[in-house]
Write a protein that binds this DNA or RNA. Structure first.
Lengths: 328, 328
DNA sequence: CTGAAAGCGCTAACAA
DNA sequence: TTGTTAGCGCTTTCAG
């Protein structure tokens, strides 16, 4: 007689432990009363059978959803191809694993901030992590989502924020540049619509103003291509620039490439710094001076907040540390 | 009177369309008979109400699982931190989205190939994508998983394989090196336990042998650190080497860095090539000559195969194309 | 071709 | 403290 190898259900565990399904449920889910004896017997039976609760069934009855959605705001669905987004997704996946939850990727069009409502209504969505979000999107988050949503970037009264202290990181970078003798420091900013990028610009302005240096800002978008173009703009507008602060490592690499195309030496003529400390920042020539960005930590904290459901502070900032290498 | 804004269920759709829940189910799921009239009315009602099936309920009744697991074989859970893995995860997430499925990340210890059985028994697992898998793991895949599992890398009779044609890519690279006059070409291999990396080594051996050049192999592991060390080993054992083929871009970058530490010019003294064509390969100095690796395409194809459940060929290879830049 | 009915595996009142 | 009961939203026989 061949027994089909069927995964054990709660029913099996209950029977093996000699209790009712309800009691077994209470001890497995860790909710409600149960005598020490019952607890013991159920626990033993469960790991004897190798029991694991079926997340789908659980989600169905609790109305709790079965996946954590990473929702990325942007003008086109290509924002989902970004390595940064993938890293966040990976970190979320690791946090979700013990809960039996999956993760999903969703594009939130900048033009249609109401889209977030549809996500909230989807019963299979257990929680939402917002990335690169805007005030407009934040305003569209329904109150019913309270406690099941977090933002990596800016937050709101309803949505707790988790982010790198890019103001602090940028400040450290610019101060370092000043300390090493640079006096005409330009910056390639992040995208304007991304308010959290504004903190870096603010920090740059502050340091530069305090030192009575000129403010030299050129818009960027975190990409290398834009960095390359921006480098030329900077040189065209302010030929005596002796340092360029990139708002991402990709930007900085682009800047270096653009500069080199014009025969400018880095860091000899112009120092260049990045932000993020991607793994390759240490391997390029010249090795990139930058500031750290603990993406995994941040994403894990955000995901944990959503899954735990415990109250969290409205904003949690993760420190960014200067990494001195060769480029600046 | 405030109506709680509850997402519509199939029941709601059925009522609105004036049919039974069963009929509504048939047309929504696209399975079983339904008159044109019924089909029409249900469809209209569904998108009038903005109905979306609840994946958890569906998974529960069909026993079909609610997430696609990306299972990475390796000696330590840190393999889950690899950007390559994250990219695969991202691609899978995009394929899963329309199915309402989530994705999950799982470490499959090299030492415990049987672990894959536990995954197979988990009712919440809808399918499995194997990464960096070994024959041992492949052998442990239970037959019950047929059609719900695919491998990125090597496959088996049970598990269809999806991979880059790294043999072809490597051949193109080595031929290019030869054509540009290099005659003493060394290679830093991928990890030995990863059999699909062997195809690159095979291709290298073949080209080199056909040209009557010496075989110079040094073991690597795809990492930049190992590349750096390997460069020195190569130089120590065969000082007249004039080209080094890296089996990944990270390796190549490490090799370049190691070479530079010894005052060797790239590509002047020694040409260096990579594999993967990561975005940054174009930005480094010197820009990296490499071969493409369509990771997203591969992962999407694998995920699609698992979710569709349609029969697929035992192995699907994706072409790798030479990208000539400066380093080699 | 359609509807009634029976669950999928689990949790949450409610009694006992 | 425990068991009984009633579903969560959906699919799927099985009769009509």
């Amino acid at each position: 007689m061949t027994t089909t190898h069927r995964p054990p259900t709660l029913e099996d565990v209950a029977r093996a432990a000699g209790v009712s399904r309800a009691t077994a449920s209470r001890v497995i889910a860790g909710t409600g009363y149960a005598s020490a004896a019952a607890r013991e017997r159920v626990t033993v039976a469960a790991d004897l059978l190798g029991y694991a609760p079926n997340p789908a069934a659980r989600a169905l009855v609790r109305g709790t959803g079965v996946r954590l959605v990473v929702a990325v705001t942007g003008t086109a669905p290509t924002v989902l191809d970004d390595p940064y987004v993938h890293r966040v997704l990976g970190a979320c996946a690791r946090v979700c694993a013990p809960y039996g939850l999956g993760v999903a990727l969703h594009w939130l069009p900048t033009r249609a901030p109401g889209e977030v409502r549809r996500l909230a209504e989807d019963r299979s969505v257990g929680g939402i992590i917002l990335i690169n979000t805007t005030e407009t999107v934040l305003d569209a988050v329904p109150v019913g989502l309270r406690g099941r949503v977090a933002s990596i970037g800016i937050g709101s009264a309803l949505v707790p924020a988790f982010d790198v202290d890019n103001g602090g990181g940028t400040e450290a970078v610019v101060r370092h540049l000043y300390a090493s003798g640079r006096r005409r420091i330009a910056m390639v900013t992040g995208p304007r619509w991304l308010s959290c990028a504004g903190r870096s610009v603010g920090a740059y302005r502050r340091v530069v103003r305090d030192a009575a240096l000129p403010v030299r800002l050129v818009p960027g978008d975190f990409s290398a291509d834009r960095g390359r173009a921006a480098a030329r703009e900077v040189l065209a507008r302010w030929p005596d620039t002796d340092a360029i602060v990139g708002s991402s490592d990709a930007t900085a690499l682009g800047v270096i490439d653009g500069l080199r195309g014009d025969g400018v030496q880095v860091p000899g003529d112009v120092a260049v710094t990045g932000f993020d400390d991607i793994p390759l920042a240490a391997m390029t020539t010249p090795a990139l001076t930058t500031a750290t960005h603990p993406v995994t930590q941040i994403a894990s904290a955000a995901a944990t907040a959503v899954l735990d459901g415990r109250p969290v502070p409205p904003a949690t900032m993760f420190p960014s540390r200067l990494v001195r290498r060769v480029s600046g």
